[in-house]
């Protein structure tokens, strides 16, 4: 993509919106007219040019503004970024993965030159020019994970692997769908997924964990997850739920199209080379209902998915209060015509 970075906000006056091009490349997560959990993992391989899968790390028109929002969150609550002491090697693995990916795939914006451990990183959109020694945290203004995490869209957690388990021992999480890094840091895979309904009985997590423990270096995998958010708010943390929760009561038939957003997470998992840890990247995409229905297939399918969603998932995803209003609004875009398989626009 060769676009300007938009100046927009994800709080207060909420000026966020998607360009037509950004709508077309939105990772619509429903490949059929209904939704249920599955271990929908596939190789994180190169996708079509212009798609969110074109490169391992997707940088788009919202980059600069999303990084500004992250800076606000971290200023107000430093606990959104935490790493247990034994995770330093994994932090460097993470920094290396992001810098090399970003510089390789977006040379117009990022540059990385390395001479042994002497690295020189340039981030033009954010006006950063940094020389540092790889492996020496004192040569960066933040610890490595926070340093590069402040320069890349998406949340990131890093899992240590030991005792046949994955332990969430580090993360920079500022745009989460209602879970707390500060509460979950140090937990294992089963523990941090404890509150998810239905999936435990379906053995989803047993299968996923078994798969992830065998994840190979250089063979990252991905899946899509989704929820819905009122207003284009990135910081839907439980920490601030007492501030944004009331937004869920503000949906009316008149404002559904602009207020209700589908929020899709492109989640990828990567084995890290030195630490043997697993990086979990959670790259979020927001789209307004009004933007979504400009793709007729998506309008029809969103209506059908929302209509057939099990009550436990409606509650868990926090959609309960505004589901009916949203359904009613979406119904005008569902003429009952059949939809094609797969999530892409027709």
């Amino acid at each position: 993509m060769n676009q300007e970075f938009k100046k927009e906000t994800f709080r207060d006056d909420y000026t966020f919106s998607n360009s037509p091009e950004s709508i077309r490349r939105f990772p619509f997560p429903f490949w059929e007219d209904k939704y249920m959990y599955s271990v929908n993992i596939e190789p994180h391989t190169k996708g079509p040019a212009g798609s969110v899968f074109e490169f391992p790390i997707d940088i788009n028109e919202h980059y600069v503004s999303e990084m500004a929002d992250r800076a606000i969150v971290l200023k107000e609550d430093p606990l959104r970024c935490q790493a247990l002491p034994h995770m330093m090697l994994a932090q460097w693995d993470f920094l290396e993965l992001l810098m090399t990916s970003m510089a390789r795939d977006y040379p117009q914006w990022f540059s990385l030159k390395t001479e042994g451990d002497n690295w020189h990183w340039i981030n033009r959109p954010l006006n950063i020019d940094q020389k540092f020694v790889f492996g020496d945290p004192s040569t960066l203004p933040y610890e490595p994970m926070e340093y590069i995490g402040r320069q890349c869209q998406g949340d990131f957690s890093i899992q240590d692997q030991r005792d046949g388990q994955l332990w969430m021992d580090a993360g920079i999480i500022t745009t989460q769908a209602d879970w707390s890094l500060d509460f979950d840091v140090g937990m294992n895979f089963m523990e941090w997924h404890g509150p998810v309904p239905l999936a435990h009985d379906m053995k989803v997590f047993d299968r996923a964990l078994k798969f992830l423990l065998n994840l190979q270096l250089g063979q990252p995998v991905r899946r899509l997850n989704w929820t819905m958010t009122i207003n284009p708010r990135l910081d839907t943390s439980p920490e601030n739920y007492n501030k944004w929760g009331k937004d869920r009561t503000t949906v009316t038939p008149e404002n559904v199209g602009d207020k209700v957003h589908l929020r899709v997470e492109l989640q990828a998992l990567w084995r890290l080379p030195r630490s043997n840890a697993i990086l979990f990247s959670i790259r979020g995409y927001l789209i307004k209902m009004r933007e979504l229905v400009t793709v007729p297939k998506w309008g029809r399918r969103m209506h059908r998915v929302l209509k057939s969603l099990p009550q436990e998932l409606i509650d868990y995803k926090g959609i309960t209060r505004y589901r009916d209003t949203t359904l009613e609004w979406l119904s005008q875009y569902d003429d009952g015509a059949p939809t094609s398989q797969g999530g892409g626009p027709d």
Partner: peptide, 25 residues
Amino acid sequence: ANLLVRDHYSKRLAAFQGVCVDAEV
């Protein structure tokens, strides 16, 4: 804040999680 006590426990904090129960209304 009026907290709903969730069945979500952190060994690191030795505590269950409490989340505002009436944030929406």
